[in-house]
Design a protein around this nucleic acid. Structure first.
Length: 271
DNA sequence: CGTGTGCCCTGACAGC
DNA sequence: TGCTGTCAGGGCACAC
């Protein structure tokens, strides 16, 4: 599913074809989205020029010269198809420029779209209380120490909380904790500063490596150009139940449930 | 405020 | 082959 590296890969792929282009058509295909499309999407955006693309946490941003930004979330099965040869029943929103056609395709419809004033992006509900970007300068061991102080919840669950760090999902939290040798079960307030000094670079490295590899192609994720990312083949713990730990410490990867989601870790080296 | 639970949705896959 | 059940995941509403 799309996490931060997949959204980043998507944004970069879209930027190649959308930046500085005029939108000639914007159409929504179905009314029964989990969250309805904002009214007047077409009227507002047709004729607008795309000034740039961006990302905040796992949200994609398409900025236009009409002081409006189109925000999209890919949910768990969303992707943008570029120049699709045939329409698909899960294409929910299509955008055209003079040279290309784009379809937001999302079988499970967990994703959604909104249109907001660019000047008010920071106060958009989902952004208003978000924590720092994991790849930005504000995520430091000292910041995390403060954010986790006194918290009894497991570090795994706290790292998924977008108010603490904005953009981490299940896969990369599991992977980063393995790299930092921290147990996902450890209470947030009991993670030492030394461990956080391993965790922050671990988060950055796993995300950056995945972006370099073009996003993982777990299940239904495909890059906008249709090529598969291949980070999935490099997972150290995610989905590796029963397999040997890559640290070759004799540990076997275990799966268990936290907050209704699966966690994987090596009980030997993650403490 | 912190914490825990359940819902939304479809397709892939396992097992019979 | 065809059916049934299970699972995946992010964000948010809601209860305590």
């Amino acid at each position: 599913m799309p996490e931060l590296p997949e959204v980043e890969t998507t944004i970069r792929g879209l930027a190649l074809h959308l930046e500085d282009r005029i939108l000639t058509s914007v159409r929504t295909m179905r009314p029964d989205m989990r969250r309805p499309f904002p009214a007047g999407l077409g009227q507002t955006l047709v004729g607008a020029r795309v000034t740039g693309l961006g990302r905040r946490a796992k949200f994609g941003l398409i900025h236009t010269d009409r002081a409006r930004t189109l925000i999209f979330h890919l949910g768990m099965s969303g992707r943008w198809r570029i120049d699709p040869e045939t329409p698909d029943k899960h294409d929910h929103l299509t955008i055209e420029t003079e040279t290309n056609r784009f379809a937001l395709n999302d079988p499970r419809r967990f994703g959604w779209v909104d249109l907001v004033d660019t000047a008010e992006l920071d106060s958009w509900p989902s952004f208003a209380s978000m924590g720092p970007e994991p790849l930005g300068p504000a995520l430091t061991p000292a910041y995390l120490k403060g954010a986790l102080a006194g918290r009894r919840q497991a570090i795994k669950l706290l790292l998924l909380d977008q108010r603490i760090v904005a953009g981490l999902g299940n896969i990369y939290v599991c992977e980063a904790l393995w790299r930092a040798r921290i147990s996902p079960k450890r209470a947030g307030g009991r993670v030492s500063l030394a461990a956080l000094e391993r965790l922050v670079p671990a988060i950055r490295e796993v995300l950056e490596q995945s972006i370099r590899d073009g996003g993982s192609s777990l299940r239904d994720f495909v890059r906008p150009d249709g090529e598969l990312g291949y980070f999935a083949t490099r997972f150290d713990v995610y989905g590796r139940t029963g397999q040997v730990c890559r640290r070759e410490d004799g540990g076997l990867i275990r799966r268990f449930e936290q907050g209704g989601r699966s966690s994987w870790y090596c009980p030997r080296c993650q403490r």
